[in-house]
Each structure stands twice: as structure tokens, then as C-alpha cells.
């Protein structure tokens, strides 16, 4: 119970710089020294116009990319120093991606899609399908487990994608414009699931969006412009306790 006051720091970025080299004289600096700390159980929105560098920041947080300079500690591990293989492991175990375009594998059904991160984590068949089924229940998609993505609506696809993001019980749910391809109603449903994950499961959720309305639903809004953080409403400190099932 006391943990909530001294919540663990999940993300500690200090002075992150990302440069791209497009030929020697044309270096392009996307991130200009970003420092950011996110605690366990926070629901954070990263807001910025397109071209602001928020996607690059998301890639950085999601261990898809390494910073050119600066350090990024994810759960105390310095991601900037990891090998390609280790980055894969970090993505597999610590990060749960939710994309704007859902990114489900179209050939396989919902259950198999949810199982996929567990497959790469080397979990057994029984364990995988049991956990995947539980997660589909969590997003209320259990009756569609054998449907392929093209038999699902956009909202349903995104719910499957969220279940997949939860598969290996990651430290962070990293959602990139998760409602961008959805209408308002289904978008609302998806947002409700994120709130549920945050409140009930105590997940750390990072929402990347350009919509100020969605951002306002979260606890903390970080605004990015031209590769720098221009505003941060800051850590509220009242991250919710994990719901301890007393059964």
C-alpha cells in the first residue's frame, strides 16, 4: 500500500538527442535533448503536431530505436546500450504496442494474434492460449477469438490489438493514435479500455496523440514541439493502487 507514494520510475530519459544523417552536411536533429520521467501506473499523454518529433520519441520509448545521445533507462536498464537482440527482448517483455492501424497479422485469427508476443517469449502452447483467452475476455472479444482480422470491425481489431499488447504483461502500454482510425463511438470504447487497464490493472499507459481532448482524459500531458518538451503537467503522484484481488 505504501508503494503508491514511492512509485517506481519506469522511464528515465535524460537529454535524449536523435539525429538522422542524410548525407554528411544534412544532418537532421529530430529530438533536441528530451528529459522525461514516467512512474509506474501513470497515464500519460504525449501531444504534438505532426512533425513535432512525437513519433520518434515513441519509437525511442518503445525500444524500436536507440538515441544518438543521452541515456534512457527503462526499468533501470539502459536501452541506449543494448544490442539488437536485447532490444527485441525488451520490446517483447516490457512494451505493449497499440498502433493507429491496428497491425494485426491478417492470416491468423484473433486468438493467434494475441498469442504472438508469447510465442516469441517462448511460452508453451497451453499457457499461451489460456492467457490469450483471458485477455480477449478482458477486452470483451472472447466470442470473436476464431475470427480473422478482416472479419472484425475497426473497434474490434483495436481491442484485439490491445489484448495483444497486454500479452506478456508489459511495463508500459504504448499507444500511438489508437483511436485515429476509428469513429467517435468506437474510439470512446477503446479509450475506456485504456482507462480500465490503467485503473483496474494498474498499467502504465502512454498515449501518443495530436488530439487535446483525448489528452485531457489522462493524468498528465506532455506537449512536444520541434523536438523539445514545451510543457509537462507533471507527475500527479496519485497513481492508483493495483487492484489486489482478495479472493
Amino acid at each position: 500500500m505504501t508503494v503508491s507514494n514511492m512509485a517506481k520510475r519506469i522511464i528515465e530519459m535524460s537529454n535524449i538527442i536523435k539525429r538522422y544523417y542524410i548525407g554528411q552536411p544534412n544532418e537532421l536533429q529530430i529530438l533536441n535533448g528530451i528529459s522525461l520521467t514516467v512512474h509506474e501506473g501513470e497515464f500519460v499523454a504525449i501531444v504534438g503536431a505532426s512533425g513535432s518529433g512525437k513519433s520518434t520519441l515513441m519509437n525511442m520509448i518503445g525500444a524500436l530505436d536507440k538515441p544518438t545521445e543521452g541515456s534512457y533507462l527503462l526499468n533501470g536498464v539502459d536501452v541506449s546500450k543494448l544490442s539488437d537482440k536485447q532490444l527485441s527482448e525488451i520490446r517483447n517483455k516490457e512494451i505493449g504496442f497499440v498502433f493507429q492501424t491496428f497491425n494485426l497479422i491478417s492470416r491468423t485469427n484473433a486468438l493467434k494474434n494475441v498469442e504472438m508476443p508469447m510465442l516469441y517469449a517462448g511460452k508453451g502452447r497451453k499457457e499461451r492460449s489460456k492467457r490469450a483467452m483471458e485477455l480477449l475476455e478482458l477486452v470483451e472479444m472472447e466470442d470473436r477469438s476464431t475470427h480473422k482480422p478482416n472479419e472484425l470491425s475497426g473497434g474490434q481489431k483495436q481491442r484485439v490489438a490491445i489484448a495483444r499488447a497486454m500479452a506478456n504483461d508489459p511495463s508500459i502500454i504504448l499507444a500511438d493514435e489508437p483511436t485515429g482510425a476509428l469513429d467517435t463511438k468506437t474510439g470512446r470504447m477503446v479509450m475506456d479500455i485504456f482507462h480500465k487497464l490503467h485503473k483496474q490493472e494498474g498499467k502504465t499507459v502512454i498515449l501518443i496523440t495530436h488530439s487535446p481532448e483525448l489528452a485531457s482524459e489522462t493524468e498528465r500531458i506532455i506537449t512536444i514541439s520541434d523536438g523539445s518538451i514545451v510543457s509537462d503537467t507533471g507527475y500527479t503522484g496519485n497513481a492508483p493502487d493495483k487492484e489486489v484481488s482478495a479472493e
Binding site: G62, S88, E89, I105, Y120, N168
Partner: peptide, 16 residues
């Protein structure tokens, strides 16, 4: 390509 990207994002190693 996209499938490969997804798999990699989900934690597939090069070897896999």
C-alpha cells in the same frame, strides 16, 4: 514487410 515490422515490434528477434 509490414508483417515483419509487426513481428519485430512484438519482440521477434532477427533469428526468429
Amino acid at each position: 514487410t509490414r508483417e515483419i515490422g509487426i513481428r519485430k515490434a512484438l519482440g521477434a528477434k532477427k533469428r526468429a
